[in-house]
Computed example of a mutant assay.
Amino acid sequence: MNQSALHVFLSSFSLAFHKPLRIFVWLPLLINIILLATATYWLIDWISDFNPLASFATDNWYGWIVKIAQTAIQILLYILLIPMMYYSFTILAAILLSPFNGLLAEKTAVHIVEHQSESTFSPSDIAQITVQSFAREMQKIMYFLPRAIGILILGFIPIIGLAAPFLWIVFAIWMAALQFLDYAADNENIQFNHMRIILNEKRAKTFSFGLIIWVTMMIPILNFILIPVVVIAATRFWFMHFHPKNQ
C-alpha cells in the first residue's frame, strides 16, 4: 500500500481503460476535445481576421513594412493567446467537468475499496454528486483567489517580491494536490477544511503528488487529456495515504 506518488500515477493509466471506469473517462474527454477544438478554431479565425493596421495602405512604398508588421502582430497573438487559452481552458474544464470527476472518483473508490467490477449510479446519486461537486468547486475558488491575489501583491513589493515566484510555485503544487485529492474526500463527506488539515498533516506525500500533477498540467493539450487519469490516481493515493482509516 505504501506506493510512491509517481508509481500510483503511472499505474493509473491502465485503470482508465478498465470497463467500469471507461464511460467516466472517455465521455468527459470527448467533451473536452470538442470544446477545445471549437475554441481553438474560433481563436485562430479571430487572429487571422485581426488587423489593427487595416487603415494603412499596403500599395505604397511602405506597404511591405505594414505587411511585415501585420504578420508580426498575428504571430505574437498566436504565441501569447493560444497557450493562455489552453491553460485557462484546463482550469475551466476542471470546474465544468467536476461532476464527471466526482463520479469517476466515486467509481474508482468502489472498484479499489469494495472490489466491485460492476456498479451503477441511480439518478439521485448522479444529481447529488453533481450538486456537491459544483458547491465544492466554489469552495476551492474562494480558497484560491485571496491567496493568489496575496502572492501577486507580494510580487510588487521590493526585495520581498523576489520570493513571489517561488511562493507561487509552492502554492500551485499545493492547489494541484488539493484540487484532485479532494474529489475522493468530498465523496466521503469530509468537510473541505478538515480535508485541508488531513493533507497538511502529511505534507511530504501531499507535495510529492501535487508536484506530479503540476508538472502534468504544465504540458499543453496533454494537460486536459490526462485529467481523468489524475482523478483515478488521486483517488487511489487518497485511500492509500489520507483516508481517515489510515490515520
Rank of each mutant, 00 (worst) to 15 (best):
I219K: 01
V110K: 14
Q247R: 15
F209W: 02
V8M: 13
I91G: 08
A127K: 15
L81E: 05
A176F: 12
L29K: 03
V113E: 00
L43A: 08
A233R: 00
A177M: 08
L15D: 11
M175D: 00
R203Q: 07
Y41F: 15
K67Q: 06
N2P: 10
P99E: 08
L15A: 11
A135D: 09
I159Y: 08
I157D: 06
M85I: 03
K19Y: 09
D49N: 14
I95R: 10
L199M: 12
A54R: 04
A184M: 09
S133E: 07
P165D: 11
N246R: 09
Y183P: 07
S48E: 01
A93I: 04
R22F: 01
R147W: 13
F166H: 08
V110S: 11
P165K: 06
F17M: 07
G102D: 02
D186R: 13
K67G: 06
P99V: 11
I157G: 05
Q247F: 11
W238I: 09
I44D: 01
F156G: 02
I149A: 03
A109E: 13
L145W: 05
W214V: 04
L178D: 13
A135L: 15
I23D: 04
R22N: 04
I153G: 06
I73H: 14
Q139L: 01
A204F: 05
R147H: 07
K67P: 01
F121D: 00
L181N: 15
A185H: 05
R22M: 05
R136Q: 07
H18Y: 00
A184S: 15
P220E: 04
V231L: 00
I160F: 12
F134R: 06
I91S: 05
N101W: 15
K245Y: 08
A148C: 09
N101G: 15
A185D: 06
I213C: 13
L30D: 08
P220A: 04
M142F: 13
L76G: 11
E118V: 09
F9A: 05
A93P: 03
I44P: 01
I151E: 08
Q74R: 09
I47R: 08
S208F: 01
A54D: 04
A127S: 15
T108D: 14
N101F: 15
L29G: 04
N51D: 15
I159G: 10
S122M: 02
F9R: 00
Y183K: 05
F89D: 00
T40D: 12
I198K: 09
I151L: 14
L53H: 05
N60L: 06
L226G: 12
I75Y: 02
V110L: 14
F237I: 11
G161M: 09
Q3K: 13
S11K: 09
S12D: 15
F171W: 14
A105E: 14
L36Q: 04
